[in-house]
Design a protein around this nucleic acid. Structure first.
Length: 724
DNA sequence: TCAAAACACACT
DNA sequence: GTGTGTTTTGAT
């Protein structure tokens, strides 16, 4: 009897062997297997003749798929993922499958229940129905053609349907779902804008590379018409009867974006986002695999959507942090897109106004082909950026007096202003005026954030909240003061300063749920609010044509951060924010409040733009041998005892000693404690990705087998994006 | 002395 | 990861 090696969803870097009579179970098929006292769903990986567990081999209890649901391309991608990210193969396969398939759902669409008449005498309504008016009505409808049960149920009650069924006049029939049949139709007759010279060059370059792997980095300033380049390139792919997979950041998937694609090509666009149910997700997966969908748009995990006739992958806003998964299999969807495009031999398009230094470096070293769009479409003008020195300046709610005047000018001119603060809530800390004691979360050892409107203090790291204290815990003093400024405070202050205008907060506190954000954005663009105060959300893809003034309250934090990527992220934020303003015909300006007006990074960014800044930042990274000029792998631990994490990482550090690997740590993570767990990390850096990968790969099973490994939660992060 | 909690370990 | 069997802990 053949022995099958099965990948199971466990944090173990091994396959499990099972028996099955059938000779031809293909790799990529799901099976249900007994595992200790329970049953698991795994994926067949390979066949073998003998197993070290011969005596305790159990048989597969059920074969779920006769044909592989993970095709050979996807399977090799999974093997690549397991090797590159040093992650257990079973968990990789689990990550790659839609939830419904993990649970053992069929990969074929469910047949549709259809209501059909049993006799087919035309135009005759049987006497039996007598005066049953509704039943006669339904019968008449069914005379024309059978209808799906769900459609019928919308119009008729269950009683009516039951009536026909009981009289044996109609039956419920299971009909194969044809909604996923391949579809190549698209409308190419839509009037499309004439591309400018740069756009035309980009479109031509992409169109000439449709049948082979090429990675393009489309570096296009905001408003330069990146989307039009996407659209016209997509059209070429559709013409070849191929599919396009488009990845967008988590927040960027708005109904407008989807509409734009649907209207342009007049076809159904598959959408994958976090609010879908498991079955909706599965349907998109099925439709894409069958070739019904020619365009699929989705967030990070969409990179795993199967395609029968892959034609192109697009990653929009490729610098966005949401492409990196932060837990479990810590993959980068952008990097994975490169691997997938190579595997399919199709072009990949990475687009951004503010490309990541990694991608930019690949473009400058000609691994990627750089396409630049430097002209703004129409007569839009880039917002003018300036710094405001706030050293020794009195601040009100974090704003300098000069800035208030400027805000007033813009408001009086009938325009909108937008202010950016990196903190939600009223203030990031509450301290005692008497003894200086700061109220901290016990589980995270971080100050509580004050939420005045809720009369609460809340820890933004673990979510713990309690009532706003009235007196100091240490000395009992009653005068507690807030420290720092959050969106809530700034919004309250500006509303009191300018009562005749409407101030609105845009952060995850005030806009819970996507619909609410969309409503608010509509209100803002209709002019219902004049003062917009928000966090990161403001920088992500939404356009505010009437905003003429953008203020960043505090640009200093990132300039001296422990994270070497902080300045890159600040520059991206500043550039993205300034791209949101002054789009229409209105000239915009952006002001950065800083204590470091002369800081070379700020100056370079403001005077020469992101493109110049990024190239300068790259040269600095090179000097410091930081990524992308070296490669990082980060071991992280979480444990109840700080000592356990230290001990585990010390072992790891000893095992991985290598002349070409620099090891930093074990050191406490930047967030030393979170949710009551102590967090440590060990950073590995090498000039050779191959050596780093090889050494970790060689020892990963030994590390897993360390006795201390059981006492800690540990993980490996390859190409870590942050050191939190 | 017993039961809950913490720990260890196997699972093919 | 999770279910189970084993050891430790602490309150009666």
């Amino acid at each position: 009897m053949p022995i099958y090696q099965v990948a199971l969803p466990l944090p173990k870097r091994q396959l499990f062997d099972y028996l099955h009579e059938q000779q031809n179970l293909h790799p990529g098929c799901r099976v249900r297997v007994p595992f200790g006292p329970r049953e698991l769903i795994g994926v067949v990986m390979s066949t073998t003749q003998n197993s070290p567990f011969m005596s305790k081999l159990k048989p597969i209890s059920q074969v779920i798929d006769e044909q592989p649901i993970i095709d050979s391309t996807m399977l090799s991608l999974c093997n690549w993922l397991a090797g590159y990210y040093h992650h257990p193969i079973g968990e990789v396969l689990h990550t790659v499958m839609p939830v419904a398939l993990r649970k053992g759902e069929s990969d074929k669409p469910k047949p549709i229940e259809t209501l059909r008449l049993t006799q087919t005498e035309p135009d005759v309504i049987p006497e039996v129905l007598g005066r049953a008016k509704k039943q006669r009505e339904l019968y008449a409808e069914l005379l024309n053609h059978a209808q799906t049960l769900s459609v019928v149920k919308q119009k008729y009650t269950d009683g009516v349907i039951k009536g026909l069924l009981e009289k044996n006049l109609a039956t419920i029939e299971l009909v194969e779902d044809t909604r996923i049949d391949a579809d190549f139709q698209f409308n190419s007759n839509v009037i499309k804008p004439k591309p400018n010279v740069e756009q035309a060059l980009a479109i031509t370059a992409i169109s000439q590379a449709l049948n082979k792997y090429t990675c393009f980095l489309l570096e296009g300033i905001t408003g330069s018409g990146k989307t039009e380049v996407y659209l016209q390139s997509i059209e070429e792919v559709l013409r070849n009867r191929k599919q396009v997979l488009i990845l967008v950041p988590e927040i960027g998937l708005t109904p407008q974006t989807v509409k734009r694609f649907e209207n342009r090509f007049g076809l159904e666009v598959g959408i994958l986002h976090s609010n879908l149910t498991d079955n909706e997700r599965l349907l998109v997966w099925q439709k894409s695999r069958a070739g019904k969908l020619s365009i699929i748009i989705g967030t990070r995990s969409s990179i795993f959507t199967p395609m029968v006739r892959p034609g192109m992958i697009i990653v929009d806003e490729e610098h966005d942090a949401s492409y990196k998964q932060q837990d479990g299999l810590k993959y980068s969807a952008r990097d994975l897109a490169v691997i997938r495009a190579k595997e399919h031999n199709i072009p990949l398009l990475l687009g951004s106004a503010t490309p990541s230094l990694e991608s930019l470096n690949n473009a400058l070293t000609h691994k990627y082909q750089l396409l630049q769009l430097n002209q703004r479409a129409g007569n839009a003008v880039q917002a003018k950026q300036s710094v405001l020195d706030i050293t020794n300046q009195p601040l009100q709610a974090g704003l300098a007096a000069g800035m208030l005047t400027r805000i007033e000018q813009h408001l009086k001119a009938g325009n909108q202003v937008m202010l950016f603060v990196n903190r939600r809530g009223f203030a990031p800390a509450l301290l005692c005026h008497q003894c200086g004691h700061v109220e901290e979360c016990k589980r995270c050892n971080k100050p509580f954030t004050v939420h005045k409107s809720l009369q609460k203090i809340q820890c933004h790291h673990c979510g713990a909240a309690r009532a706003l204290p009235k007196q100091c815990k240490e000395c009992g003093h009653h005068e507690l003061i807030t420290q720092g400024v959050g969106t809530e405070q700034l919004s309250m202050f500006l509303q009191s300063q300018f009562p005749q205008y409407s101030a609105v907060r845009i952060d995850s506190d005030s806009v819970r749920g996507k619909a609410k954000l969309d409503n608010l954005l509509t209100e803002i663009n209709a002019g219902a609010h004049q003062i917009l105060i928000g966090t990161q959300i403001l920088s992500k893809g939404h356009h505010f044509p009437n905003v003429t003034l953008v203020v960043i309250l505090d640009a200093d934090g990132a300039l001296f951060s422990a994270d070497f990527r902080a300045s890159e992220h600040l520059a991206q934020l500043i550039t993205q924010l300034s791209g949101r303003a002054g789009r229409a015909q209105k000239l915009g300006e952006m002001w950065l409040q800083t204590h470091q007006p002369g800081h070379p990074l700020l100056q370079d960014l403001i005077n020469n733009g992101y493109g110049h800044f990024a190239r300068f930042a790259l040269s600095e990274r090179k000097l410091a041998s930081l990524p992308p000029f070296s490669f990082h792998a980060l071991f992280r631990t979480e444990s109840l005892q700080a000592q356990d994490g230290f001990e585990f990482l010390s072992h790891v550090s000893q095992m991985l000693q290598h002349p070409q690997i620099r090891i930093v740590g074990p050191i406490p993570a930047i967030m030393e404690k979170r949710q009551g767990k102590y967090r440590m990390q060990l950073l590995l850096q090498s000039h050779s990705r191959a050596i780093l990968n090889q050494v970790i790969g060689h020892f990963s099973t030994d590390i897993e087998a360390l006795p201390i490994a059981r006492k800690v939660r540990w993980s490996i992060d390859i190409d870590p994006q942050d050191f939190i």
